[in-house]
Amino acid sequence: MFKSMKSRIAVAAAASMICMTAGATDITGAGSSFVYPVISKWSAKFAEKTGNHVNYQSIGSGGGIAQIKAGTVDFGASDKPLDEATLDKFGLGQFPDVIGGIVPAFNVPGIDAGKLVLDGKTLSDIFMGKVTMWNAAEIAKLNPGMKLPAQKITVVHRSDGSGTTYNFTHYLSQVSPTWKSKVGEGTAVNWPAGIGGKGNEGVSAYVKQIKGSIGYVEYAYALQNHIGYAIMKNAAGKVVKPETKTFQAAAATADWKHAKNFKLLITNAPGANAWPITATSWVIMYKQPKNVEHTKVTMDFFKWAYEHGQDDARSLDYVPLPASLVKQIETYWKTEYKM
């Protein structure tokens, strides 16, 4: 059975390759749910413009990395950059596509979005399961005068591997030594408390449904779905709102020029107006792709997105990449990708 199936697939595969080159190109990407809203918007517009379909499935950054390594997709998208050793081992290259912010999202009746103030230490204590009530002293101290209910806190985290989790736990590790030693950072960690939702979508859905809950999601998810989000005290000690301006302030402190393979995390950035949990997302592709045509179309897609997709990105509260960075990426394509 095994053999016959293999040969049947091989024949059919050969047949389909002929069909595929004839019409418009369909490319497939998978990974980060952080960038799903903006990529799917770009994709619909790009399809109208060129007829090429970019089929992007939001399966989590870990999944994006796994599937690009397995060669089952044309590009992976991850909010966690790969290190140089892994990139070299698999012959992969990576470049950023968009910058955005992660916000602590909560559902406490009576407290509106953008009113609750948190700092890194308190946030990590909440996710450690140490601060368990909304009217705890730690939260009250940051929010003088606010009426905090005596409600239990329910932590909502990601149940899948995720770059959002990576950036979030990276930030918590930066601000809390306890978090660093007890939990650590990663695309998935051993959560000390709470329930898990699948994707940014799942976490937002749970936060929306459970009273007294707190989670972390990409800003656009909180905004579009009318979920309350907290404002944060940043590394400079200033309380900032999550918005394009503060994400940009964090991105501005980034030194992309010296970041090899664009590996650079911008959480807990020092700028006075910088949003502390700002994250970049990367696209990962083979440098010597098996299907050159698909990789070319993927580059066309992102090139088009850097140029024409800025307004879409802004409308979804992402930060488009600065022009200098785009130029750097285009050079990277020319020098690193052999096609």
Partner: peptide, 22 residues
Amino acid sequence: MPGTSISSSIANEFNEAVGLHR
């Protein structure tokens, strides 16, 4: 309290998992 089950762990994490995790 919330928990997990064998089949929901697989459904949630399989696509994201690599190496030993998978």
